[in-house]
Structure formats: C-alpha cells, structure tokens
Amino acid sequence: MKLTLRVWRQKNADAEGTMSTYEVDGISPDMSFLEMLDTLNEELILKGEDPVAFDHDCREGICGMCSLVINGEAHGPERTTTCQLHMRSFRDGDTIDIEPWRAAAFPVVKDLVVDRSAFDRIIQAGGYITAPTGSAPEAHATPVPKPDADYAFEHAECIGCGACVAACPNGAAMLFTSAKVNHLNVLPQGAPERETRVLDMVAQMDEEGFGGCTLAGECATACPKGIPLTSITRMNREWLRATRKAGKR
C-alpha cells in the first residue's frame, strides 16, 4: 500500500505546530497502524530527520497508552485502540490525517504525544479503595452479587486512554471519571468512600479544566472498551446523592 500521511508536528509544548505531509510506500494491510508509523519513522531516521513522536506501550489494546485522532476519529475508524487498528481498514492511495488528542487538560508534549497526567490526578482524588494490604483476603469474605460484579467489571475495563476526552466536543472527562466512580461505587469494597469518591473526583475533573457534559454521546462512540453513555447518568445520580447527604451532615 502507498499512503499519504498528514501528521501533526510540534517540536515541544511551547512551539507552534503544523500538519506535515509524508509519503509511505510498501505498507502491508496486515500491519497495525503503529507499525505503519514505525515504518515512516525508520525512513525519517535514515534521512536524518526527526522521527514522529507518538505514545505506545503494550500494543495489545490493554494499556491505554496509544492515542491518535485518525481522520477526525479517536483511535481511527474501528472501535478499538490505535495499536489494534490494522492498515486493512484503509485503502491503497488514501490520505490519512493524524492528530494528537485535543483538550486544554491534555497539553501536547511533542508531535502526537499529549500529557494525560490530569487523569492520574482524578484517580488520586478518589479512584481507590481503602483496604489493608498484606496477604490476599479470603475470596468469599465479601460476597458481591453477580450483576454488581458484572457492572463493576464493565466499568473497570476503562484503560484511561483519553479517547472520550479527545472525541468530546467539550473536551470533557465525564466518561472516564464515571467509569472509575461506578466501578468502585457499586462494590461493597468501595462503599465506605462512596460519597467522597464521586464528589472529590468530579471536583478534580473540574479543577483540571475539562469541559462539561452536553450528552453529545461522542465519548461512548469512541471508547475502545465500550463504556456506555449511561455510565455518566449513573455518576450524576451518585453525585446528586452524595451532595444531598453531605448537605445533611
């Protein structure tokens, strides 16, 4: 396959960026999107040019490190992570636009790499449970109803890649935050911090400069792990409940 790539190049956080055009040839349809970028970078290095910086790690679709807005869609045309996207999703001779996640809370570090530590700070605000560490607890010590376990797992699938923020017209982190809140709030292990968790995580989310939710639904469409839009609804319910309870205290 022969492709024309238009890639966002930006030297560093303070530099002005621009879209640069590159031609790549000899791309196999079986290559992953990141392997295609590796091919481009090898050519750039041989030519003595600066390779395109992009985030990647496990390349198995489970770490949440890879990003990229491909032709205007977070993680590209398939509902998966960029590393699991294959070149067979494109046609020979295509022009592909590659841009970084765009959000005020995700500043560009270089080229296609953005700083997603805002997510880490949201987790630090309440995305944990308080439990004694040490030897593993007895598995049956805390019974969890099967529907709750399934619900928690569905939300625990979130890999924190930030596609929801990238796809949201408001750069909101509601789907990410709600996935984390719901994952823990539905479980008995998360019950002691149920109220403070949602209040603190939403407050941190606002603090980081993410936008608000307008229920456009783009986040859930872009999510490679299929976190549903109703996750946001449930977090709103949790937030209202916690606010009412905090008001009574």
Partner: peptide, 26 residues
C-alpha cells in the same frame, strides 16, 4: 458559564473534523 468552560476546554479544533452528534445536539 458552562459553554464558556466547554469552549475553553477545547482550545484547538481538529484539522480533520467529523461532526457526528445529532443536529438537535449541535
């Protein structure tokens, strides 16, 4: 106030834009 915040949260739009939300939403 929410709109101001939303616009500030997405200071740069994508070069390749693909509006997908419905007309009523937009």
């Amino acid at each position: 106030q929410l709109s101001r915040r939303d616009i500030k949260a997405r200071p740069r739009t994508y070069v390749h834009r693909k509006p997908r939300a419905g007309y009523a939403t937009r």
